[in-house]
Nucleic acid binder design. Structure first.
Lengths: 219, 219
DNA sequence: ACCTGAACACCGTTCAAGT
DNA sequence: ACCTGAACACCGTTCAAGT
């Protein structure tokens, strides 16, 4: 009674079709993304994928670039700092919406076209603010680093709800207060570790400093 | 002529000995760290490790905690912002000195004791600066995120010298200037992407904003 | 209690073969 | 040109056996 596998039609496997399947698999956790799992979802044999991507690494790079191309820049206003804030928030939301992608993007800092596009859009805001080329690159790097680091805090929780990082407040409260007085005292605040409010605070301080530096330079 | 494997003496395998070997393996690249490779280095059989660590995940968690315990806080001065700057720099140097550990720490936000210790030390500085508990946690989160994100930029290069991220400047210069004018114009600045100078700029703006916020609150 | 050996269910990928 | 099948050299881990 075994169902005889039908042979896949000739042109039915394209990079797009493969990436679509790969993303569906990755959404169940990036570690679940294997060439064999993607092939199985397409009812193809693992080796069929290798006609379209030379290695798994290249398939993953293409997949991540595809995700990053979904970034939509907020409309510009006349306040470059507010534009930068909106930009950073939109970028962080993109990462949060693809929690499975955060770790591999972090590990694989692929200089793909989608990353270049995001950089170009950010530089436009920073240069408009009066920053030098060198400072604009440094400022964009800082914003990216903040977002990737922050996304790792939240991605870990989103990907593993109920995991060890879930009731961090309870764990910290149970520590010896003699050794870690401030940690125990701030246990409640740690419960919202990685929250939107905390992100707004951190990003806000960075933008405050950036605005001050830019106005110093232009006076 | 095959050398007969001698049986390992009874107490010769301890968690410390295993972690020592694991770190030596991981230094050749974290993806090279397998239970089998660690066992081979100890001239033991893979299953021997399971008497000391229940899973690979637990072994890795212990290994990362061990690395983070090497953090040495700089001595305190009477300027909390300068103390925070020195703290952030020391933390980033620790990550840079263990480039192989950056990705797994990022993926595995283990609330291990070493992380708690680092947090306690940072909070001491922030509370001394007059920040509320909630703001201190947010500020420390921001500094951590910045450092982990930044470390990912440099770790990728350090772990794969001569890799695709090596001559990023040349790659960016080759892009169509109509589509990416600012990227092409800043190609030289991107060549030093992730540099100490750029980090100092990004951290500096964050600390400027933090100082301003703290003095506002205490007036 | 701790170390071993064989086995199981996975990987990515090579290589030769089909159509 | 693209899809297939079998095989190779790896994984983490279970389970039963040694000492």
């Amino acid at each position: 009674m075994a169902v005889k596998r039908t042979r896949r039609p000739r042109g039915s496997l394209t990079p797009d079709v493969i990436l679509e399947a790969a993303e569906a698999v990755a959404e169940q956790g990036f570690e679940a993304l294997s060439m064999r799992a993607v092939a199985a979802r397409l009812e193809a044999v693992p080796m069929a994928l290798y006609n379209h991507f030379a290695t798994k690494e290249q398939l993953v790079a293409a997949l991540l670039d595809r995700v990053l191309f979904r970034f939509e820049p907020p409309p510009a206003t006349d306040d470059w700092i507010e534009d930068l804030r909106a930009f950073a928030n939109a970028h962080r939301r993109l990462l949060a919406a693809h929690a499975w992608a955060v770790a591999p993007i972090f590990t694989n800092p692929s200089p793909g076209l989608a990353s270049v596009r995001i950089g170009e859009l950010a530089l436009a805001i920073l240069v408009r603010g009066g920053l030098s080329n060198a400072d604009a690159v440094a400022a964009f790097s800082g914003m990216l680093a903040l977002n990737y680091g922050w996304a790792s805090f939240t991605a870990a929780r989103d990907l593993d709800p109920g995991g060890p990082s879930h009731d961090v407040a309870a764990m910290l409260r149970a520590l010896p207060a003699e050794a870690f007085p401030l940690t125990v005292a701030t246990a409640d605040a740690w419960g919202t570790y990685g929250s939107d409010r905390d992100y707004a605070f951190a990003l806000g301080r960075f933008l405050d400093g950036l605005r001050a530096a830019a106005s110093d330079a232009t006076i």
